[in-house]
Every structure is written in structure tokens, then in C-alpha cells.
């Protein structure tokens, strides 16, 4: 039981660390935001594992959900501005 908990903690922490590294080193904004949402989900799992359901609630609602949605919108605008020749399909059907 205790050994299982240790293995669970190790797996959770290693996944969280790997996710953080991949998030910080990604160059494309949308990819970074989606990875950030996944990071928030895993961080909420960590709080749940540490028997802190209130912190897990706050992290899941604010960290992963709300700021994730807001940053997705921001990343969409940012990428539309920098790579405007690439998404000409979108610009065509705009009025």
C-alpha cells in the first residue's frame, strides 16, 4: 500500500516535471497553452493527492479552466497576427 503510494507519487511528479519542461520549451503559442491546460489538470491531481480538495478545486477552476480558455483566445489572436499570410483561408471568408 505504501510502496504503491510512493510509485504513484513518483509517476505523478515525473509527469508533471516533463510536462513543465515541454510547456516552457515549446515555441508555438497554441501548443504551449494546451500543454498549460494539461499541466493545470495534473497540478490539481497533485493537490488532490496531498488531501487538499479546496486547493485542487481552485487550481482546476482557475488555473486549468478559466485562464486556459482566456489564454487560448489570446494565443489565437497572437498567432493570427504573426502568421497572417499562412491563414489566408480564414481571411477570405471574412466580410
Amino acid at each position: 500500500m505504501n510502496a504503491l503510494l510512493v510509485i504513484f507519487d513518483l509517476l505523478l511528479t515525473l509527469t508533471l516535471l516533463g510536462l513543465a519542461v515541454v510547456t516552457l520549451t515549446s515555441r508555438e503559442p497554441r501548443r504551449a497553452v494546451i500543454l498549460f491546460i494539461a499541466f493545470g489538470l495534473l497540478l490539481a491531481l497533485v493537490w488532490a493527492r496531498l488531501r487538499a480538495p479546496d486547493l485542487a478545486l481552485a487550481e482546476a477552476a482557475i488555473g486549468a479552466g478559466l485562464s486556459g480558455a482566456l489564454m487560448l483566445a489570446a494565443a489565437r489572436r497572437a498567432s493570427g497576427r504573426t502568421t497572417s499570410p499562412a491563414d489566408s483561408g480564414d481571411a477570405e471568408d471574412a466580410p
Partner: peptide
């Protein structure tokens, strides 16, 4: 439909 920014 392949529209929008989805097909980057």
C-alpha cells in the same frame, strides 16, 4: 471543413 486556425 478544414477551416480556421485548426489546420496549422
Amino acid at each position: 471543413r478544414g477551416d480556421g486556425e485548426d489546420v496549422v
